[in-house]
C-alpha cells in the first residue's frame, strides 16, 4: 500500500501540465501509477485525485471501467490470453486450459508466489500472432503449449527482463522526463490556440449577425 513516490508524483505533475484540463490526465496517470505497484492502490488513487482535481471516487470509478487498470494486487507478470475469434480458431481456448493447469490458477487469479496473474482477454489486436498472449502489454505468439511453458520459464529466469518491464507500464505513457517542451512553452502554445479559437468564434458571430 503506497502513495506515489516523490519522483513519480513530480512526473505525474508534469503530465498534468500537458492538458488544458487537469482531469484529462486521469488515465495516463493511472497507467503511470500502476507502473509502481502493478495495481492502483488506494493511496495512489488519492494522489491521482489530488493531481487531477477530482474525487477519489471518480478516479476509482473511471479506472474500474478498464480491464487494463487493476484495482486489486496482481502478479509481477500479467499474462493476458486472447480468446477472441481469431485466437479461438487457432486454439486459444485449449491454450487457456493448459495455462490454468500449468499455473494452478483459473483465469483472473494470481499464483501464490506472486509471479503471475492470468487473464482472459478480448482481441489484443495481435491476430496475426494468434493465439496471442500479452505479458505486461508485450506481445508473444503464436504460442502452443510448449511455447507457453518456455515463455514462463524465460520470464522466471529473467531472460526477458529487457523486453518485459515490470508491472506492465505502457511505453507510450511512460515518456521520458523532463518533457521535451517546457511548461512555459506548453502554456504559450495553448494560449495561441485559444486565441485563434476565440478569433474564429468572433468571426462566426459577425457572419451570423450579418445573416
Amino acid at each position: 500500500m503506497a502513495h506515489l513516490s516523490k519522483e513519480l508524483y513530480e512526473k505525474c505533475k508534469s503530465v498534468v501540465a500537458l492538458y488544458p484540463e487537469a482531469r484529462s490526465a486521469l488515465i495516463p496517470l493511472c497507467h503511470m501509477a500502476q507502473g509502481q505497484e502493478g495495481w492502483l492502490t488506494s493511496e495512489a488513487i488519492e494522489d491521482i485525485a489530488e493531481l487531477t482535481g477530482v474525487t477519489p471516487a471518480e478516479v476509482r470509478g473511471t479506472a474500474s471501467f478498464y480491464d487494463m487498470l487493476h484495482l486489486e494486487p496482481v502478479g509481477k507478470y500479467v499474462v493476458a490470453m486472447c480468446t477472441n475469434i481469431a485466437c479461438m480458431l487457432n486454439g486459444s481456448m485449449e491454450l487457456l486450459d493448459h495455462a490454468e493447469e500449468k499455473l494452478g490458477i483459473s483465469a483472473g487469479g494470481t499464483t501464490s508466489d506472486g509471479e503471475f496473474t492470468l487473464e482472459e482477454s478480448e482481441c489484443l489486436a495481435g491476430c496475426d500472432k494468434a493465439p496471442c498472449v500479452q505479458v505486461n502489454h508485450r506481445f508473444f505468439g503464436p504460442l502452443d503449449n510448449k511455447g507457453f511453458d518456455q515463455l514462463l520459464d524465460d520470464l522466471k529466469a529473467g531472460k526477458l527482463s529487457d523486453d518485459v518491464p515490470s508491472h506492465g507500464v505502457l511505453s507510450r505513457v511512460d515518456r521520458r522526463f523532463p518533457l521535451a517542451l517546457s511548461p512555459s512553452e506548453v502554456a504559450a502554445e495553448r494560449a495561441e490556440m485559444e486565441n485563434a479559437k476565440s478569433q474564429r468564434d468572433e468571426k462566426r458571430k459577425v457572419s451570423e449577425g450579418a445573416n
Binding site: 477530482v54 474525487t55 471516487a57 471518480e58 476509482r60 470509478g61 473511471t62 474500474s64 471501467f65
Partner: peptide
Amino acid sequence: ALIDFFGR
C-alpha cells in the same frame, strides 16, 4: 462527487 459508477 463522492459517489460514482464502479465497474462495467
